[in-house]
Write a protein that binds this DNA or RNA. Structure first.
Length: 125
RNA sequence: CAAGUAAAUCGCCUUAUCGCUCAGUUUUCUGGGAGGAAAGUCCGAACACCGUAGUGCAAACAUAGUGGUUAAUAGCCACCGGCCGAGAGGUUAGGAAAAGUGCAACAGAAAGAAUGUACAGGUCAUGCUGUAGUGAAAUCAGGUAAACUCUAUGUGGUGCAAUGCCAUGUAUACCAUCGUUUGAGGGCGGCACGUUCAAUGUUGGAGGGUAGGCAGCUAAAGUUUAUUGGUAACAAUAGAUUCAGAUAAAUGAUAAGGCACUUUCAUAAGAUUUCUUAUGAUAUGUGACAGAAUUCGGCUUAUAGAUUUGCUUGAAAC
RNA sequence: GGCGUCUUGGCCGAGUGGCUAGGCAGUGGUCUGCAAAACCAUCUACAGCGGUUCGAAUCCGCUAGACGCCU
């Protein structure tokens, strides 16, 4: 049960991302929003994840990079909450739709909330 | 000591835990991992491609005191001149108005064409001379070239999403139209010459595919120390050194301690209410600007706080 | 990453270096029994900072913002 987030766990395929945004479903816990889709990967990884911050809301590259790092950190520490409760493979993307910067602790709590919401949604289906 | 001015430097640190990325080793370890501006993309190059871009004309753009420096520049250095400042110093697109064309609102008699108001002087007589008045500018070879222009010099274009290779796919296809070996039409992004392609033709319509990987990609006009030459920019020689390479895009998060600044309080000293300095405590306080993307050299812009040095002015003491 | 274009009142939109047009909207009035229309008046601008010039929305730099292109 290691808290890693290396290259293979990142969502990189352009086709898959386009499919995600056109066909995927979403859950949100403001200022976080998550878009997800059920899919199948070649390698044995439960989820592939990407993060995104709008350039319109944060003009400076420093701010965008910092928020993305915090989002990745939060995912890394909480991902086993998801892994232990799903049977199929998923691709999803976490978006930051707020306008103000938050601290790590706030983002961490919000991520936990977001993931539990996500699990509720997929178990309903 | 106060105020100012010029230049240079640093721009949070340490430890622990959990991670990211590259390289090596090979199966879990070792080592490297943002900046002075990495930014803006404003100049100059390297490098790559465009059928090697030839000659003449025209156009467009850029530069503009003199000398030096550099791979190169519109950068930098020194000096001369102009403007600002009491000074140290700052700033300066600073060729030509006797080649030509244009422009000058309002005011004013009059704005480049000649005339003319008031007063005074002068003359045989007359703007002939001076002063006043308007204006940024009023007769002076006038002003204005960041107005056109002229002079001198320079410039082919596009940019690493350049470009090459591999994989996948494939269309020199289809429909309509135009034209022809008596040279249509196209390339050399304006024209002419010249040259070259020319049924695998031109123009239009409708439509399909890729958007993955590798190279380019980091050892270079590199960084740094010393000496020598030069007022300086800079150059030469010798030694040392290897220092990011991602691609939905690494360099972070958490905890503790320290450092700097700020707030408030206390004590002491100096002096006038109040202020200054020093020491200690205090707070969930603050720690700027900002994130490599082909690579260098400059310029410009942003920047909390701290440090050092030269010079100027003023005051006091010796 | 690279290359380019634009910015004039609340909105649209003209403007050869000489007090920044015009329309719509807003506000106040005239008219009306009340409103609409019409008429009159009024308010609000050259993205910001420097430079050239007697004088800059206009010419020249720098900065900010908005938008487009590349495969």
């Amino acid at each position: 049960m290691n808290h890693t987030y290396h290259k293979a766990e990142k969502l990189k395929s352009k086709k898959l991302i386009e499919a995600l945004f056109s066909e995927g479903k979403s859950v949100s816990a403001y200022p976080l929003r998550m878009v997800y889709i059920k899919t199948h990967f070649e390698d044995d990884i439960p989820c592939k994840v990407g993060v995104s911050v709008s350039k319109k809301r944060f003009k400076k590259a420093v701010d965008r990079n910092h928020i993305k790092r915090l989002l990745r950190e939060a995912y890394r520490l909480n991902k086993w909450d998801i892994f232990n409760n799903i049977d199929e493979q998923y691709a999803f993307m976490i978006l930051y739709i707020g306008k103000d910067k938050l601290t790590f602790h706030e983002i961490n709590d919000l991520s936990k909330k977001l993931f539990s919401k996500f699990l509720k949604h997929i178990h309903k289906d």
